[in-house]
Amino acid sequence: MAQQATPVRTARLGRPLGPEPATVSGVVLLLPAGDETSHRRPSPVFAAASVRALGRRLTRAARHEGLAAHTVHYRLRGWNGNEANLARDAEWAAEEAVRRYGDVPVCLVGLGMGGRAALRAGGHQGVNSVLAIAPWLPEEDVAASPEPVKQLVGRQVLIVHGTNDQRADPELSFRLAARAKKANRKVCRFEVHSDGHGLHQHRDEVHALAENFVMGALFGRSFARPLEDALAAPPPLGLRMPLASGFGHH
Rank of each mutant, 00 (worst) to 15 (best):
A168W: 03
G216F: 07
V157W: 07
V130G: 12
A143G: 15
G196L: 07
D103F: 04
Q151H: 04
V106W: 06
G110L: 08
F174M: 08
A180Y: 00
W136D: 10
L158V: 09
L176D: 03
S173G: 10
A132C: 09
D169G: 01
K150Y: 01
E211I: 08
K181F: 13
V98G: 02
H197M: 08
G154Q: 08
D169C: 10
A118S: 04
N212D: 14
D165A: 11
D141P: 07
S145K: 11
G110C: 14
A134W: 01
F213G: 02
A144G: 10
P138Y: 09
L111C: 05
Q156E: 13
M113I: 09
L172R: 15
D195G: 12
V149P: 06
R100I: 06
A118I: 11
A168C: 13
F190P: 09
T163I: 08
R189N: 10
L152C: 02
V106R: 03
G216V: 10
V153W: 00
G154D: 01
A210D: 00
V130D: 07
F174S: 06
D204M: 03
G196N: 09
R99E: 00
L137S: 06
L119G: 01
H202Y: 07
H124C: 06
K181V: 06
Y101N: 08
L137P: 14
H202N: 09
V142R: 09
N212L: 03
G198T: 11
H161P: 14
L152T: 01
W136E: 01
D204N: 04
L152M: 10
Q125N: 04
F174E: 03
K182F: 09
L108V: 05
H207P: 00
V109G: 04
R179G: 04
E139Y: 13
D103M: 03
F190H: 01
G162F: 08
F190R: 04
H200T: 10
H197S: 10
V142N: 05
G110F: 13
H124T: 04
A180F: 07
G112Y: 05
V149T: 15
R120A: 14
L176T: 09
D141I: 12
K150D: 13
G196P: 02
Q151S: 14
G115M: 07
A97Y: 02
H193L: 15
P170L: 11
G123S: 11
L158R: 02
N164S: 14
R185T: 15
G216T: 00
V214W: 08
G115C: 11
A143E: 14
Q125Y: 02
Q151W: 02
V157D: 00
G123Q: 06
V153T: 14
A178I: 02
A178N: 14
A97V: 05
V214D: 01
V106G: 06
V192H: 04
R203D: 03
A168F: 13
K186C: 03
Y101Q: 07
G123C: 01
V214I: 12
D141Q: 14
P135N: 10
V206G: 03
P148L: 01
G216Q: 05
H193Y: 14
L119I: 08
H124G: 02
V109Q: 12
